[in-house]
Design a protein around this nucleic acid. Structure first.
Lengths: 198, 198
DNA sequence: TCGTGGTTGGACTGCATGGTCCAGTTGTAG
DNA sequence: CTACAACTGGACCATGCAGTCCAACCACGA
């Protein structure tokens, strides 16, 4: 691939984003390169020109892009999270990202299940995305802890993991129902951990 | 299909269980009928003899079976859940089912993600399994509530959904890491809802 | 103007997979 | 013993898919 021109970068990006949409809607297995090719008005050779490793490399690129995109959708709140109202704003932005925009699934979470067994490299990318996300939440929990809203002995990493789990699990339940209430119930209850001083 | 003899029922069951194993390990898309045929020492015609609807009918049968199996693995605790120690025993049985037996994923939860978009009928089966499970947990939460361990105003259904979400989400995080700690953190924190009287 | 390297189009291949078909076997009820 | 229905084996078909290949097309610097 050597170097990319501006035009090349734009084409590559178009492929990544469209593939992301298809995967979110139909899963990795349900997304064929021909679908992507048609939707992006490209050709087979371009797909393999930009992703010599084939489908798996493309999917990995999608995972990286979606991971960044997901964090971007939580800005600027996710870098604050020092007050309860900041957490609330963050919660609203997140639920809107998933539900309001008709996603009904987490671009990373849905990859996690499908990736874990079949593609270790992809699993590593997914784990990295979760890790970065968890780090931001952990920092927020720590700020709340310093402000006295969380018991001093509690481990911020575990609380952050529980909040992240509530999101992912809530989506798992909400998805087949096509109703946001389980997600909201799970997330709100997980956030109660921030209301329990000693 | 008309009627099944004892032998036929056993063959059918063998197919369902083996397919369940394969799906859990590789997903629906990653499970081919030829794999199933080889692992069960059967033939193509048998697969279509017992499941005339083809792969999708087979997968649906698997979902139903796994749903029942999953509840069975939580017996007898899941039908009690009237004391904190009963919840602890339930929690231990569940974590052992997932982690101790090397599953690292929920047979139903992993289907949920893959099914939601592609097969509405399967999504309905999955939603039903979640519903039955949630009902049992809801009953347990209600018992705790009557015993005074849960605030009277709280909605048991939402608490049960949050606990279920913690399980599913915890598994999503634990899976790529291959480490049970996120599952345990999420589940334990969700169970704190049972420690908060008014 | 010419050439080089990134870029694009699309035909083609090989393979895996879901699904069909029919012939043969086993079990069992009368 | 016979007949029928459940059961089993495996060859076969059609299709959809990832991946290959090569020829053509820009864009830009020399």
């Amino acid at each position: 691939m050597a170097e990319l021109t501006e035009r090349g970068r734009r084409t590559r990006q178009r492929i990544v984003e469209e593939t992301g949409r298809q995967i979110l809607a139909a899963g990795i297995g349900g997304t064929s390169l021909d679908d992507v090719r048609a939707a992006t008005l490209t050709s087979k050779s371009q797909l393999f020109h930009y992703f010599p490793g084939g489908k798996s490399e493309l999917v990995r690129a999608v995972a990286e892009w979606e991971g960044a995109e997901l964090l971007a959708a939580q800005e600027p709140h996710v870098h604050d999270l020092s007050t309860r109202s900041s957490w609330e704003a963050w919660r609203a932005a997140l639920v809107d990202y998933y539900i309001g925009q008709g996603r009904w699934a987490c671009p990373i979470g849905s990859l996690a299940t499908e990736a874990a067994a079949r593609d270790p490299e992809l699993a590593a990318v997914v784990a990295g995305a979760f890790g970065a996300w968890a780090d931001l939440l952990t920092a927020g929990v720590r700020r709340m802890q310093e402000a006295g809203a969380v018991r001093t002995g509690a481990d911020p990493r575990r609380i952050a993991a529980a909040i992240l789990s509530a999101i992912q699990g809530g989506l798992v339940l909400s998805q087949p129902l096509h109703d946001p209430w389980p997600l909201e119930a799970a997330l709100d209850q997980a956030l109660h951990a921030l209301d329990a001083p000693a």
